[in-house]
Simulated scan of single mutants.
Amino acid sequence: MPFVLLAFAILFEVTATLALRGSEGLSKAGPTAVVIVGYLLSFALMAKALTSLNVGPVYAIWSALGTVGAFAGGVLLFDEPVRPVTVAGAAIIVVGVVVMNLGGGVGHG
């Protein structure tokens, strides 16, 4: 169950981050509301997941998948460019999270 909470936390974080772009500097009410609600839900769900998972690996997973999700969303929704070096950077982030998780378990105890 904590990994399901983490997955939803990542989904809400990516949604909020993409809504930041659509909010035009927080000047549009609808996207700004999505930003606020999305980040609140993301942090609440991650906090709940952290009651049974270790903070280091969880934060690494959350931030890495959030970064990759925001990158993909920017490409799909805002026609942002995809460059080989950007794809390589995203791959390095994912590899880093995998290596970090190989170093120890994500669960308490």
Rank of each mutant, 00 (worst) to 15 (best):
G25K: 00
A90T: 12
V98C: 11
G109A: 09
L20C: 09
S52V: 15
V87S: 10
E80V: 06
T86R: 15
V55F: 07
F43S: 05
A33P: 11
G89A: 12
L50F: 05
V85D: 15
V58W: 06
A72C: 09
R83F: 14
V34H: 04
T86P: 14
Y59Q: 05
E24A: 10
Y39P: 07
I61N: 00
G103L: 11
V97D: 02
L41K: 08
L5A: 01
T32M: 10
T32A: 05
V4R: 12
R83E: 15
I93V: 06
L40N: 15
A64F: 05
F71G: 06
P2L: 13
N54E: 09
T67D: 11
S42L: 02
I10T: 05
V97F: 08
S27D: 03
V106G: 13
L77R: 09
W62L: 03
A29F: 11
L41D: 01
V55P: 08
A29D: 10
A88Q: 14
G66V: 06
T86C: 13
A90N: 10
L18R: 01
G30E: 15
K28E: 11
F3D: 11
L45P: 00
A7W: 05
V14P: 03
A19V: 03
L76V: 11
F8K: 09
T17A: 10
V4A: 10
A16L: 01
K48P: 07
A60P: 07
G38I: 00
V68H: 12
S23N: 04
F12L: 09
I36Y: 03
G74K: 02
A9Y: 01
L65G: 01
P2A: 14
V99W: 11
M1G: 12
I10C: 01
V94G: 00
I93Q: 08
G38R: 00
R83C: 12
L53D: 03
V68Q: 09
A44P: 14
T32L: 00
V35G: 01
I92D: 14
P84K: 04
V94T: 04
F71Q: 13
A44K: 09
A29Q: 11
V99Q: 13
S52M: 15
F12N: 05
V4F: 14
L40M: 05
S23W: 05
G73L: 08
L41M: 07
I61V: 13
E80A: 02
D79W: 15
E80D: 07
G96K: 10
I10D: 02
R21L: 06
I10S: 00
V68D: 07
V85C: 15
V34I: 04
G107V: 14
F3W: 12
G56F: 11
E13Y: 02
N101M: 14
L76E: 09
I92F: 13
L53R: 05
E80N: 08
L20M: 13
F78Y: 07
K28D: 06
I10R: 01
F78D: 03
L6P: 02
A16S: 04
G38K: 02
G74T: 04
L20W: 04
M1W: 04
S27L: 03
L40F: 05
K48A: 10
V95Q: 11
I36K: 02
A49I: 00
R21E: 10
V95A: 14
T32R: 07
I36M: 01
I93H: 02
V55K: 04
V37L: 06
L65T: 08
L11A: 07
